[in-house]
Amino acid sequence: MTTAQLSVKREAAATLGRNSGNRAVSLWLWFVALLVFAMVVVGGATRLTESGLSITEWQPLLGAFPPLTHADWMTAFEKYKQIPQYTALNHGMSLEDFQFIYWWEWGHRLLGRLIGVVFALPLVFFWWTGRLDRGTGMKFLGILALGALQGAIGWYMVKSGLSDRIEVSQYRLALHLTTAFMILGLLVWLALDEWPAEPYVTGEIATPLIKRMASIIVAAVLVQVVLGAFVAGLRAGLIYNTWPTMDGQWFPSDYWVNPAYLSFFEGHAAAQFNHRVVAYIVTALVLVQVWLTYRTPVDDRIRLSALWLGGAVILQAVLGIATLLAHVPLHLGLLHQAGGAVVLAIAVVHLYATRRAGIEPRDFSSRGRASA
């Protein structure tokens, strides 16, 4: 393709791109994704401050109101005193200390309710006014249902720590955190799909290898999220606080527990080692992808998203090391969890860029009221 032909094609593509897409729907989805990101960070704070078990009941409607009187506060405090965590970790704590952890958990649950409202009400509006492209309504309903399921998973997780444990189950924590990251990734994808943008130019599309690598990277990041949840649930970041070795060992001597197959899920040393190794794998995959996009003539959006992903992964690795060496202080722990969400979001942006290259955008000019 000559330079003149490429210029004409780009100009035509730009004209089509300006007349397609639904900016309002996309902005709404980006805002919801931002709220989910905040939810991930606040959820990390509830875990690091041991606040997640401070509210011992699940009341989807009445739970939106915090204790309003001293008597209400004392009632909530007395309920907390009945669970093992209070006896083992917080026996004798003051009402003020209880209120501190209560507000973290209450804020986490309130943010979840807010996300549901912010997603559901505009969805009804956009659907009723015909702003949704045909076929997308069910996708949005799927996200809404997944969000509702996430609320139930959250209570399922909390319930695991109310009777026989002093913390929540690492298995349920992994399920809860992974579901949150999946919702974030889906929102980012749908927001990109709705945003009016210049189509990719034929001849600058991603190669099959780059497309496969983009998919593998997203999958690897999700695996790393699961492993990070097990580290968090087992408090495995509080041991082997050295790097690059684990107290002088490249492979921890206490990796295996009895029975051996439970090492991956219940072994503290194994949880940290696995998280370290997959971090190296993710970093290597991303750096290879950056190299591939720079040695191949691809659209600038593919190359730029790969570069941003490389920067985010390196920063996240540095944060992870710093968090480990400092014995997981609150501020670094939150930054590391937030960094994981950012890495996933950028990985999804990069995957979207590789998958949409060479595909003509949907025509939004003839939108009608969306049907299921």
Rank of each mutant, 00 (worst) to 15 (best):
L89W: 12
L95H: 11
Y86P: 01
E105D: 07
L110F: 13
V117L: 15
N90K: 13
I83L: 06
F119H: 05
Y102E: 02
Q82A: 15
W106L: 01
Y86N: 01
L111V: 11
E105I: 06
L89Q: 14
A88M: 10
Y86H: 03
L95P: 05
L114Y: 06
S94P: 05
L110Q: 11
Q99E: 14
W103N: 01
V118W: 03
H108K: 11
Y86R: 00
Y102R: 02
Y86Q: 03
S94I: 08
Y86F: 15
F98I: 10
W106N: 00
F98Q: 01
H91A: 13
N90M: 10
G92Q: 09
E105F: 12
G92I: 12
N90Y: 14
H108V: 07
E96A: 15
L89G: 02
L89I: 14
W106D: 01
I83D: 01
E96C: 05
R109H: 09
L110R: 00
G92K: 05
Q82M: 14
I83E: 09
D97E: 15
T87H: 14
R113Q: 02
L89Y: 14
P84Y: 11
D97V: 13
L111P: 04
R113H: 06
Y86T: 02
G92Y: 13
L114W: 11
F100M: 14
L89S: 11
H108R: 11
L110Y: 06
V118T: 04
L95D: 05
W104M: 09
W103E: 00
I115M: 02
F119Q: 01
H108C: 11
D97P: 04
G112Y: 02
G112R: 00
E105W: 07
T87G: 10
E96K: 13
V118R: 01
E105M: 07
I101C: 03
W103G: 02
I101K: 07
N90H: 15
Q82H: 09
R113A: 06
R109C: 09
L111G: 14
H91P: 01
G116I: 00
G112M: 08
G92T: 06
N90G: 04
H108F: 13
F119P: 00
L95M: 12
Y102N: 04
W103M: 12
F100Y: 14
I101G: 06
I83M: 07
H91R: 10
V118G: 05
I83S: 11
L110C: 08
F119V: 08
I101P: 02
Q85G: 03
F100N: 10
L89R: 10
V118P: 00
R109N: 04
L89V: 15
G116S: 03
L95N: 06
V117E: 04
W106R: 00
F119S: 00
Q99I: 13
F119L: 14
I115T: 08
F98A: 07
I115N: 03
W104Y: 15
G116N: 02
G92N: 08
E96I: 11
G112E: 07
T87R: 15
L114M: 13
D97H: 14
Q99W: 10
R109T: 07
W106A: 00
W104R: 03
S94D: 10
L111W: 06
Y86S: 01
G107A: 12
R113S: 02
G107S: 14
